[in-house]
């Protein structure tokens, strides 16, 4: 039991952080929503109703979509793009999808390889892209949910100003949708880009996201 916890501690740690943050976000968001409603003379919501409201949903999903987009792009961009000296980059001669031998695909699979890596054909192609496809699907669903919930929340604000509501297709070209979207994207791209570059010169002893402390600055594709 103790060994299982230790061996899965990374996933469990972030799972716990996620749940605590979501609860904190829900409580703080609820308080803020009701404070604004009261100040403007409108009705307040119970916590239960706030949790299924578009206001909460759009705030959650706009962050989810950007996080999954960040990892989607990082997974795919690092297939072809390189960064000399970065542990986030592959070695400089390995740009691209690499050979079947390097990837242990088809007849190059060994006895411990997943079955779909060895069988060939459609299943191996699907499995070869399964991480990107899954992250991409979650990104698109989160972004779709953001657009649906965002339109409801935006229209709620418009009704509070006694303006007519807008349609979903109209909301897709609205500044509110793109402001919510791009404010998240820019921060994700900055964080990922700076991580790739800072890791050339800086180290964290013991982290696989860093090169070993004594590794040369120009050593590429080496993780600690």
């Amino acid at each position: 039991m103790r060994s299982a916890l230790r061996n899965h501690s990374l996933g469990l740690f972030f799972g716990l952080l996620f749940l605590l943050s979501l609860v904190g976000h829900a409580l703080a968001g609820w308080q803020e929503f009701n404070a604004v409603q009261t100040a403007e003379g409108f009705g307040t919501l119970s916590l239960g109703r706030y949790l299924v409201s578009s206001d909460f949903a759009v705030d959650v999903t706009e962050n989810w979509q950007s996080e999954y987009l960040q990892f989607l792009l990082y997974i795919t961009a690092t297939v072809w793009f390189l960064q000399r000296g970065s542990p986030e980059s592959k070695e400089l001669h390995k740009a691209g999808l690499e050979s079947d031998e390097d990837q242990k695909v088809g007849r190059h699979a060994d006895e411990r390889s997943p079955r779909w890596a060895a069988v060939g054909g459609f299943r191996t192609t699907l499995f070869s892209w399964s991480l990107t496809l899954t992250m991409g699907t979650i990104f698109l669903l989160s972004w779709l949910a953001q657009s649906v919930a965002g339109r409801v929340a935006y229209n709620e604000t418009r009704l509070e100003r006694f303006q007519d509501p807008v349609s979903w297709t109209s909301y897709l070209t609205n500044a509110d949708f793109w402001s919510r979207t791009l404010q998240n994207w820019q921060s994700e791209f900055l964080a990922v880009g700076s991580m790739a570059v800072l890791a050339i010169y800086l180290r964290q002893r013991g982290s696989p996201e860093s090169k070993p402390v004594g590794e040369a600055h120009d050593a590429t594709g080496i993780e600690g």
């Binding site: 409603q37 409108f42 009705g43 578009s54 229209n155």
Partner: peptide, 23 residues
């Protein structure tokens, strides 16, 4: 009627009203 979160707009042929949810 169109309902968006805690707000609703009720439209009549020559009149419009806005409502807010209280509980």
């Amino acid at each position: 009627v169109q309902v968006f979160g805690s707000m609703a707009q009720v439209t009549f042929p020559d009149e419009t009203a806005f409502l807010s949810r209280y509980g």
